[in-house]
């Protein structure tokens, strides 16, 4: 294994949200106070990661319209909400597609309620909606999900904080160094600029990387709208010269 010739572009910690971001109150007691210890030179432990091509997925794992329906045998029961296709490409910082990588997502239903035993929000569960999906990117790094647009919901932070509609997105990439969990927001949502979690980012350009864009060309007439959400993971570099 020639891992030692490989490295990843440094993660820009000023681009990502800081650990301590007091406007998002839960960070206050959960943020380390000590500096991160830099590895300086990554080893095989950091340069490798899991490959999920042999993980057996269900036929509807990426189709949230169908993967929790109450009565699949009868072909009945669809979730309430705006039907959407969420799709995009996983590429690295040099624009190179990341093929066969695991993309997972989870979300609230159209009323803003999660199917989770701790979510007690007033809005009801949808009997036909689970809110979880997973898929592998194809050869060119593309992934696709079909789902409904999640609703906004209130949460205890400021006296009246609301989360914008969002889908949680998790991507592995080629190594544990590229591991990333983010959230996709919906273009034009007026709650985005009000959200304390969005505000953990200091750079407005960084917020733009989390906006799913309405794509009319990929929408299906008389069926569903499409939102495109490309993911960029850390770029892989090769070392061409010996270390002496």
């Amino acid at each position: 294994m020639q891992d030692h010739n490989k490295r990843f572009v440094e993660r820009d910690r000023n681009w990502h949200p800081p650990a301590y971001a007091p406007g998002y109150k839960t960070t206050v007691a959960r943020s380390p106070q000590q500096a991160l210890v830099s590895m300086q030179q990554a080893s095989t432990s950091e340069l490798t990661g899991p490959d999920f091509r042999h993980l057996r997925m269900g036929s509807h794992d990426n189709d949230l319209l169908l993967n929790f329906r109450q009565d699949p045998a009868q072909g009945q029961g669809l979730p309430v909400g705006e039907r959407i296709i969420m799709f995009g490409r996983v590429v690295d910082q040099f624009g190179k597609p990341v093929p066969h990588t695991l993309v997972e997502m989870w979300q609230a239903n159209a009323g803003g309620r999660y199917r989770h035993k701790n979510d007690r929000y007033l809005a009801p569960l949808d009997p036909n909606f689970g809110g979880v999906g997973r898929t592998l990117t194809d050869e060119q790094g593309w992934y696709h999900f079909r789902t409904i647009k999640p609703g906004p919901y209130p949460w205890p932070n400021d006296p009246n904080s609301w989360r914008p509609s969002h889908i949680h997105v998790s991507v592995m990439g080629p190594s544990i160094s590229t591991r990333l969990i983010t959230q996709m927001y919906f273009e034009g949502d007026p709650l985005i600029p009000l959200c304390p979690i969005v505000h953990t980012l200091k750079d407005a350009d960084a917020v733009e990387t989390m906006i799913g864009r309405l794509d009319m060309a990929r929408s299906k007439p008389m069926d569903c709208l499409a939102y495109r959400f490309d993911l960029v993971v850390r770029g892989e570099l090769q070392t061409y010269f010996e270390n002496q």
Binding site: H16, Y24, Q93, H168, I181, T182, T209, V232, V233
Partner: peptide
Amino acid sequence: MLRETASQTAG
């Protein structure tokens, strides 16, 4: 070079 997609809490 592209910028990495920004991280958000897993919630």
